[in-house]
Amino acid sequence: MLLIEVTNARDVVRRRIGRLGERLIGKVVDAEAQVEKALIQEMETAFQEFGIEARIVSTQTTKLIGNRCEFSIRVRDDRDVKLNDGSVDS
Score class of each variant (00 low, 15 high):
47 F>M: 10
47 F>E: 04
47 F>P: 02
47 F>H: 06
47 F>K: 06
48 Q>A: 02
48 Q>Y: 00
48 Q>R: 09
48 Q>K: 09
49 E>S: 09
49 E>N: 08
49 E>Q: 11
49 E>W: 01
50 F>G: 02
50 F>W: 07
50 F>P: 01
51 G>L: 08
51 G>D: 03
52 I>H: 01
52 I>G: 01
52 I>Y: 02
52 I>S: 02
52 I>M: 01
53 E>A: 02
54 A>N: 02
54 A>F: 02
54 A>L: 04
54 A>M: 03
54 A>S: 06
54 A>Y: 04
54 A>I: 01
55 R>H: 05
55 R>G: 01
55 R>W: 00
56 I>E: 06
56 I>G: 04
56 I>P: 01
56 I>W: 02
57 V>W: 08
58 S>E: 03
58 S>R: 06
58 S>T: 04
58 S>M: 08
58 S>W: 00
58 S>P: 03
58 S>V: 07
58 S>F: 08
58 S>H: 05
59 T>G: 05
59 T>L: 01
59 T>S: 10
60 Q>N: 15
60 Q>T: 13
60 Q>V: 13
61 T>Q: 13
62 T>P: 08
62 T>W: 10
62 T>F: 12
62 T>A: 12
62 T>V: 12
63 K>Y: 14
63 K>V: 12
63 K>R: 15
63 K>Q: 14
64 L>Y: 10
64 L>E: 13
64 L>Q: 13
64 L>D: 09
65 I>S: 14
65 I>W: 14
65 I>F: 15
65 I>D: 15
65 I>Q: 15
66 G>P: 13
66 G>C: 12
66 G>F: 09
66 G>K: 10
67 N>I: 04
67 N>W: 03
67 N>C: 06
67 N>K: 09
67 N>R: 12
68 R>T: 11
68 R>P: 06
69 C>K: 13
69 C>Y: 14
69 C>G: 00
70 E>M: 14
70 E>R: 15
70 E>V: 12
71 F>H: 05
71 F>P: 02
71 F>I: 00
72 S>N: 13
72 S>Y: 14
72 S>F: 10
72 S>K: 14
73 I>C: 04
73 I>Y: 03
73 I>R: 03
73 I>P: 01
74 R>T: 04
74 R>P: 01
74 R>F: 07
75 V>W: 04
75 V>C: 03
75 V>K: 04
76 R>A: 13
76 R>G: 08
76 R>H: 12
76 R>T: 05
76 R>E: 08
77 D>Y: 07
77 D>T: 10
77 D>Q: 13
77 D>A: 14
77 D>P: 06
78 D>A: 09
78 D>T: 07
78 D>F: 13
78 D>V: 09
79 R>F: 00
79 R>Y: 01
79 R>S: 09
